[in-house]
């Protein structure tokens, strides 16, 4: 359902991610662990493009979120002028592709690689890409610092995205229908109008109903009209999770959800995440809570130095780590 291919991320000359590929299956719970500064959070933020990967592609449900990375498509490389030049110099197909990939010969030469190359890049992009805002609606994200909207009450926080997006969809449909009506004036075979989604007042009503149900589910119904500044960290984080759930996401991304919490509030947030996991939600959890990761995960990724140093089931990774860095890290944190 979520696939990342060969992700690299540079901040200036500093390499944070150095080629990470993994696939997250439907209903799977994947934990990402590793030392501070190893790139865990950056990896998570690359999944919904809060950070744009320098190289590599992110796919969700067979749709491309990032621009096309030419190095991941052999036919694109073969269409480039650089490739044909190398071939004409007597290099074999494999060697030429390897050389181009290794030396990053296509980077920032988009216009110099010829028409065929550009056409192929554009074709792959047009066939597969999806607007990032639409993709993000299906990816809930929970932040370390909660990031509740300070200028909105709790219930407004939860309702905001469904209401704004619902109304925008309704208006877009109305505009499209108006266009069809206008074009029908000049046509013999009239085009049928498309069905309208919920109108704004229905959208609001549904969103509020849903928000109240979510608040009830997390046990915070009485805070509906309070502002975030009056709430405890644990309450804020639970509301942040409810806010992400309000969009009915297919996958939830947790970026160290308990790291900014007082110790006595960690439990309530982890319980909520555990509930979500039990309900079958696909989750990616960046965390320092090793016990929790071990308990809920189907798969654990250990990130070190910008690559996946080791991955496996929690039993494999926690009981019998193969990678020396993983062993060292776990021996330190599992004491």
């Amino acid at each position: 359902m979520l696939e990342i291919k060969n992700i690299y991320k540079y901040f200036g000359s500093h390499q944070v991610l150095k080629g990470i590929s993994t696939e997250i299956e439907h209903g799977q719970v994947v934990s990402v662990i590793g030392a501070s500064g190893s790139g865990k959070s950056t990896l998570l933020r690359c999944m919904n493009l809060l950070e744009h990967p320098t190289f590599g592609e992110v796919w969700m449900e067979g749709k491309l979120l990032t621009p096309v990375d030419p190095y991941l498509h052999f036919d694109v490389i073969r269409a480039s002028k650089t490739y044909s030049k190398l071939i004409s110099e007597g290099m074999s197909d494999d060697d030429a592709i390897a050389k181009i990939k290794k030396e990053d010969l296509l980077h920032e030469k988009y216009n110099a690689e010829g028409k065929k190359y550009r056409a192929l890049m554009k074709k792959i992009y047009d066939e597969n890409h999806i607007d990032i805002n639409i993709a993000r609606q299906k990816m809930g994200m929970v932040f370390q610092q909660f990031n509740l909207f300070n200028n909105k009450s709790v219930i407004e926080n939860i309702m905001l995205a469904p209401v704004k997006i619902g109304i925008a969809e309704y208006r877009a449909a109305v505009r499209r229908n108006n266009r069809i009506r206008l074009s029908n004036v000049f046509r013999k075979d009239k085009k049928p109008l498309i069905g309208l989604p919920d109108d704004p007042s229905a959208v609001k009503l549904k969103a509020e109903e849903n928000a109240r149900a979510l608040l009830k589910r997390i046990g915070l119904s009485d805070t509906a009209n309070q502002y975030p500044s009056t709430l405890s960290g644990g309450q804020k984080q639970r509301i942040a999770i409810a806010r992400a759930l309000a969009m009915n996401p297919d996958v939830m991304l947790f970026d160290e959800p308990t790291s900014a919490l007082d110790p006595e509030m960690v439990g309530e947030v982890l319980d909520l995440i555990n509930d979500l996991v039990k309900s079958g939600m696909t989750c990616v959890i960046v965390t320092h809570e090793m016990g929790f990761a071990r308990e809920v995960s189907d798969r654990v990724l250990f990130i070190d130095g910008g690559v996946i140093a080791e991955q496996g089931t929690p039993e494999q990774l926690f009981n019998n780590p193969q990678n020396p860095r993983a062993a060292e890290f776990l021996s330190k944190v599992l004491r």
Binding site: L50, R136, K138, G140, F143, F149, N150, A161, I165, M247
Partner: peptide
């Protein structure tokens, strides 16, 4: 706070 923007964008706004 940048987190406010990130939170809104992550919801698909």
């Amino acid at each position: 706070d940048k987190g406010q923007t990130e939170a809104a964008r992550s919801l698909g706004l």
